[in-house]
Simulated assay, not measured.
Amino acid sequence: MAEIVTTSIKSLPLVYRGKVRDSYAVGDDKLLIVASDRISAFDVILGDPIPKKGKILTALTDFWFKELDGIVPNHLTGTDPESVVAPEERDQVKGRAVVAKRLKPILVECVARGYLSGSAWKEYQTTGQICGVKLPAGLKQSEKLPEPIFTPAGKAEAGHHDENITYEDVVKQYGEDTASKLRDYTLALYKKAAEYAASKGIIIADTKFEFGLDDNGTVVLMDEILTPDSSRFWPADEYKVGQSEPSFDKQFIRDWLESQPWNKKAPAPKIPQDVLDKTSSKYEEALIRLTGKGVTA
């Protein structure tokens, strides 16, 4: 089937269209969440889809939910997505959707960092710390941190960048009990995933998780986890301290956009097909290295 930029499921009420995912109501307590082939860069949704991207993200997330089972409850219900839509709509959800519990989102991006990269590297160079966490002096770009750290960000409105906050800010917003669970779950998930990925020749430099609260106030892991959209995956055999690392994520498409005369506001430039295909192959290589399996188009 061709790439899916926007789903059109008429048999269920549309709840929300995000940068990548479309969510539909399944009764009062569940959501059908469909991963499209859209991609965003610099907080702009690009007009050209990435082949197989939605299926790759879904396959990786499903894999990680199984691999990390037992650390924290997650939002999966086990319901077959194809069973909740009309027969003629099944092609839109096959291999790219889940039926999830409907939760109250916690408005914090829960970021775990094991290496000094991206915005954290910039903040460290200026302040010597990240999100209020003081780090040793003299660290270099992409260097492994002494211990993984929790560096939360406050979720911004659409079109704005998330802003780094401190653990104390999370405590003020959600209380010590919930804040400590968010931190401890985030670091436990990251450590176990990083250990597994290392056995497959991949460094997970950092990643972000999202959580919600169920009707009982239980913290539940939701959304995608440990994909190239939400993580920095580096090939371990090319890793060197002091450089910007090659990665299995959207950096390739970001680099192409940076070379264009573009003000980083919508609409984005039209992306050449070879750049789209190369981005797709980088995403799929991460999937294959981690799980041993690719996806069909």
Rank of each mutant, 00 (worst) to 15 (best):
G175Q: 06
P261H: 09
R232N: 01
V93P: 09
A137H: 07
I288K: 14
A268Y: 01
V219T: 06
T127Q: 09
Q251D: 09
G27V: 10
A268P: 02
R90W: 13
L76A: 13
L287F: 02
I39G: 08
S40A: 14
E67M: 12
I9C: 12
Y283S: 09
K52N: 14
V98K: 09
T291E: 04
H161N: 14
K172L: 11
Q129S: 15
T227Y: 05
R183C: 05
A236Y: 06
S259C: 02
L187S: 05
Y124Q: 12
E123W: 03
R183D: 02
T58H: 12
V133H: 07
F42R: 01
Q173F: 01
D274A: 03
T186I: 03
P146G: 03
P148C: 09
K250I: 08
H161R: 08
G128I: 05
P272M: 07
R232F: 03
L187N: 05
L107R: 15
V44E: 04
T127I: 01
H161I: 01
L213F: 11
E163I: 14
T218G: 10
I50L: 11
I4Q: 01
V26C: 10
T218M: 01
V98D: 05
Q243C: 00
E195V: 14
Y185T: 09
L139Q: 10
P272N: 03
E163C: 01
I203V: 11
T7L: 14
Y196V: 08
G95C: 12
Q243N: 06
D48S: 13
E224P: 00
D169T: 04
C131A: 15
K94Q: 10
G175H: 04
L14R: 09
V295S: 06
L145R: 11
E168Y: 05
F65A: 06
Y283V: 06
G18M: 09
Q173D: 01
V20C: 07
S142Y: 01
G132K: 02
K10N: 14
K55V: 00
P228K: 05
W234S: 00
K122F: 10
L145S: 09
V72M: 07
L57N: 10
K94Y: 02
P105F: 13
P87N: 10
T79F: 02
K140Y: 10
G292M: 05
A198W: 14
S117W: 10
P267M: 12
V133K: 04
T61Y: 11
S259F: 02
Q251M: 06
D62P: 00
F150A: 07
L189W: 03
E224R: 00
K10L: 12
G70Q: 13
P136L: 05
K144F: 00
Y190M: 07
D37G: 09
T218I: 03
K94A: 12
A41T: 08
K293L: 07
W262A: 13
E147C: 03
D80V: 07
Y185I: 08
L76G: 12
